[in-house]
Design a binder for these strands. Structure first.
Length: 295
DNA sequence: AACAAAGCCAACCGCTTGTAG
DNA sequence: TCTACAAGCGGTTGGCTTTGT
């Protein structure tokens, strides 16, 4: 690339010296930049016009805010990136005094990693498919499917005329067997649950895996990982709003499944935050699926 | 203290878009 | 409409600084 020294036309490249900065600033303050191509010669700089323009717009402009980004600025960038993608100049337009280059650098060096650490895909702003949280959610949904199937089978059997089934009811095993025909792998669920229990740490950011919640005990008909985990805390300053349909559908089936008394455990069920346009959890914010368990 | 690896960021490249003639 | 030039933009890179061993 050769960013140091000069190219074949004799134009200097590489880092700017304080003397060059002074010349450029003095000239622009007196005359404005006018034509960038003409500027270097007029200002007595051995640089190409493009280099002068970049130096001015990214570093020397008087309205540039120097210093590190505040938490608020970082959150703004994340939120804007979720909407705009890598449109750095558009994002910079919302952050007075910050350049697109600066924001791009911050994104590539800090924010991308930060989101990855949170289990969020920095491109889609959704949970990564391999992520711990998402994995648990898939398990939970699979387990809920078992329970639903279990109920359906039970209903079918009650209306059937098979004596031993009327006596014994439908076994979990039968439900798993039937669910297996849909492609669901029950053995993976058991294995994953064991691994999760082994991996559980006291200082885990997620809520503990208690079966006992306050004075209530879950009645869990099939072995499932307890779904008391927090997916993500929503921020308050974007255009998400709670929509009741997804939430109601999902939470009510879970309530039934977990056999939790709705009135005494109302605090556990918080609204899913759903983006109105896509009707999906978005902006890198998923939802409080479950709230605190220690009420 | 010395070295290597990782982090960081200013500056560059090249493509795209806008505009004047 | 076409052409040339300027400016905008996003991706990439080189080298300095910081951190880890």
């Amino acid at each position: 690339m050769g960013r140091r020294g000069s190219d074949e036309s004799g134009v200097k490249k590489g880092p700017w010296t304080p003397e060059e900065d002074t010349r450029l600033v003095d000239f622009i303050e007196k005359h404005g930049h006018g034509s960038w191509r003409a500027l270097p010669k007029l200002a007595g700089l051995n640089r190409c016009g493009k280099s002068c323009r970049l130096r001015w717009t990214n570093y020397l402009r008087p309205d540039i805010k120097r210093g590190s980004f505040s938490e608020e600025e970082q959150q703004t960038i994340i939120n804007l990136h979720a909407h705009l993608g890598n449109k750095w100049s558009a994002i910079a337009g919302h952050l007075p005094g910050r350049t697109d280059n600066e924001i791009k650098n911050l994104w590539n060096t800090h924010l991308k990693k930060k989101l990855l650490q949170m289990g969020i895909d920095p491109v889609t702003h959704r949970p990564r498919s391999t992520d711990h949280h998402h994995h648990h959610l898939q398990q939970l949904l699979a387990a809920a499917q078992i329970q639903l199937l279990h109920s359906i089978l039970q209903g079918l059997i009650m209306t059937s005329n098979v004596p031993n089934l009327l006596n014994d009811g439908v076994s979990d095993h039968m439900a798993y067997e039937l669910l297996g025909t849909t492609g669901f792998n029950y053995s993976n669920l058991i294995q994953d649950q064991d691994q999760d229990q082994q991996a559980a740490q006291p200082d885990d950011q997620f809520l503990s895996n208690n079966q006992q919640v306050g004075s209530s005990t879950y009645s869990v008909p099939v072995p499932v990982p307890t779904p008391n985990y927090l997916l993500s805390a929503p921020s308050s300053d974007h255009e998400c709003s709670p929509l009741i349909d997804h939430n109601q559908l999902f939470s009510s089936s879970l309530r039934d499944f977990m056999d939790i008394d709705e009135a005494s455990n109302a605090n556990y069920w918080k609204d899913l935050i759903i983006d109105q346009s896509s009707n999906q959890p978005s902006h890198g914010e998923y939802a409080y699926l479950f709230g605190k368990v220690d009420s």
